[in-house]
Amino acid sequence: MTALAVLLLADSRLPNGGHAHSGGVETTVAAGFLSTVDDLELFLRGRLCTTAPVLAGFAAVACLLDDDADWRRWDRALSARIPSAALRTASRLQGGALLRTVAGMWPVPAGLRQLGRPHQPLVLGAATSAGGGSALDAAGLAVHHLLGGACSAAIRLLGLDPLAVAAVQAAVGGPGAEIARQAVLAAEIAVTSDDPSALAAVSAPLTELLAAEHAQQEVTLFAS
């Protein structure tokens, strides 16, 4: 059953609010930095060495934390890693959406629910734990959604060949899995030492800049 629960969390058919977010692809396309499948691959590889370790680390932590942990503190630690208010909002909107869904599927820690709209990786990690998955599952799911959301947005916005995009997503899967493994090691240290500073904190400058630009656009198809 565990495997099915994790697959359920990986499935974009699960109502998680993700379909309306492009993971920065829309604004990167609009600014002229991304237009081909090759660009998309570079974009994904860039995400893997910047945002991915952060999201995966927090998802893994949330999977390892006790129900009565200080969820607010971990949530703040992730906020501190996201300078752009627009990106924090996007993360909280998706966290709230996923929480709404998983709260009806499995028991979710009360401390997390009390946050209202926690950051998405925390909800993902807590849901993974509630569904019986491991910290590595949680970290992998975080990386998977980061890559998958970007790929699907690129297909919709640029008309890229979905088969070529699938091949690219598969190609970056190896490095993505390695990021997830590293994130779990960091998460174990962070949880054991009760200190979020052990978690990756990378933020990519272009991502933050373009997120701010996206938020001030009159006309956008994606919420972020």
């Binding site: 379909h19 309306a20 977010h21 492009s22 947005a153 919709r156 916005l157 956008t220 198809l221 994606f222 919420a223």
Partner: peptide, 11 residues
């Protein structure tokens, strides 16, 4: 206003 990521029916 809600943005639908190019998929109005999904939303």
């Amino acid at each position: 206003a809600v943005r639908t990521g190019c998929c109005p029916h999904t939303a």
